[in-house]
Nucleic acid binder design. Structure first.
Lengths: 123, 123
DNA sequence: CGCGAAACTGGCCGGGTGGCCAGGACTCCT
DNA sequence: AGGAGTCCTGGCCACCCGGCCAGTTTCGCG
């Protein structure tokens, strides 16, 4: 991957709203060092509209649940999570239970998948 | 939500690569009519990196393993996977075992997380 | 035609998981 | 003071999971 420092940064414009797209195109169209991508061109980055994003509010998870969730995503067992967090396995299972309910998941794997899909955690 | 046509367009910068983020920030930092969003500010659009990297070659997974992996990512149990695929639970466990080994995972949750990270599956 | 890879199946078993019950401690808000 | 919410802990138990052993068939390749 050769990174030519002098090359233009190519940016794709993926905005559905024509008005916003036009304004952005006008603003970004003549900036030295930056170029808008051609229809099929591979871009270094893309501009996407934000308003189309769905994510009402991060599901109400407590801090402790987030801690447990993060470790679950690492594939840690309840025992490992307990050790890591300095709490008992029972407490971990309690939090996992809460997580399963709040994320509407059937198991820890499903919980991690749901959380990742909703952007609650980053894989 | 009043749409003031004369207002600045607020853009969030969500680029992992620090070098690219810096260059973009420098380029976009002083353009009239455009402003980069503050950390918690709601933006009209976002710039995201178009990761062309990563994904050397999909780890050699057989078709059946991919089938099992996909269902695992849905949170399905071995029993459910077996029913879905019309095979025995033992066979599912056999494939899961292969998956764990190939993905270097310690459990099914870890396997799904690894697979998602490597782009083998889409969450 | 052998030979390996892939797919499939079975039994067995230790340990992990999730659901249920119960309790106590703390902080914040009405 | 009385909740409500969060966090923590214990026991019990059915079930699931993953690893071990073993076997079968089918397929393509040399």
């Amino acid at each position: 991957m050769s990174e030519d420092k002098t090359a233009e940064i190519v940016i794709a414009l993926e905005v559905g709203d024509p008005a916003l797209a036009d304004r952005l195109a006008a603003l970004l169209g003549n900036i030295p060092g930056l170029r808008l991508a051609a229809p099929d061109e591979q871009a270094a980055a893309a501009i996407i509209a934000r308003d189309s994003r769905i994510m009402p509010e991060d599901i109400a998870l407590t801090q402790r649940e987030l801690d447990v969730l993060a470790l679950m995503a690492e594939g840690a067992s309840n025992k490992m999570i307990a050790r890591q967090l300095g709490i008992s396995v029972h407490t971990v299972k309690f939090h996992v239970g809460s997580l399963l309910h709040k994320l509407d998941a059937t198991g820890r794997t499903d919980a991690v998948a749901h959380a990742a899909r909703r952007g609650v955690i980053e894989l």
